[in-house]
Amino acid sequence: MRNLSIKNLSGPTGILAALVVLIVLFSLLNPRFASVENLQNVLFQVSVPLIIVVGTSLVIQMGSIDLSVEGVMGAAGMAWILLSPNTRLEGDIGVWAWFVALGLGLVLGLITGAIYAKLKVPSFVVSLGTWYVGLGIAILLYGNALLPSLTSEALARWPTQLTLGLPNCFWLAAVILAAGVFVSHYTKFGRGLMAIGNNEPIARSNGMPVDRYKIAAFAIAGTLCGLAGILATMQLGSGSPDIGFGQLFVVIPAAVIGGTALSGGEGGVIRSAIGVFLLIILNNGLVLAGVDPDYQSGVFGMILLIAVIAVAWPQRGRLKVAK
């Protein structure tokens, strides 16, 4: 029945429909799912992946991939908390901590982009390497002393405080999302990334500074991961090298499911964002519906499969190439 009703839809509408169906389903299974409290909970949980996914989408649109998400978050998050009011060090440098942490993310992104673009190493492996490099930096910063916890009430409360009914952390993510949409649709850079993903040799022969765009895309992704690391650290209230744990397998699937194909040249920031909502709501709904933890990844996998097949079904054709 569900298949028939979305048969004539395609693109982002397909994935939106899947999202709506899930929301309805979970609300029926547990009315608390649709409560204001859960809405705030979900918005709290999507904020960090949303920030990351903006950068990830730009990279994937080029046809590349960025696996370094968790490592960069760890490095930037640790740097930020050690330079902010915390229980371990006295080195609070206020707003400059943000600059240092974001700068660290930027540098790691630049390195990834440069090695990828200039040394022609597949992005999969470079970013796998920078993942460990970032993680390594985070571990070295952590050392083996006391767990650094935020001592500033203001900073620790900020993410959950409500402004106009929505949590602050979500507003931050929304701003980043809007900026991402603007860059990818309304700037030469953004459209260039799509062109590179579609057909790089032609883009190059049209005079596009492909290498510079590539490096810029990774640099943006790195900076955004740094921001995400800071936000995640604020949300947890303490610093940890593993602050990014699990984000990779939310963000990349979200982008891909949203329609930003790994081969590049299609999709977009908004679609990836919808993908993020889909995955977070799926997980949240499963917990609220009382699914046995042992079965959680199985049910998750099944629903994912069904959703993805349902979205792809109307578009299948003899000559369609799906990779």
């Binding site: 699937p253 891909v256 194909a261 499969l305 993805v308 792809a312 578009q315 299948r316 799906a322």
Partner: peptide
């Protein structure tokens, strides 16, 4: 048969 991208599948 469904042309779902192999990553998601």
């Amino acid at each position: 048969y469904t042309h779902v991208p192999s990553f998601a599948l």
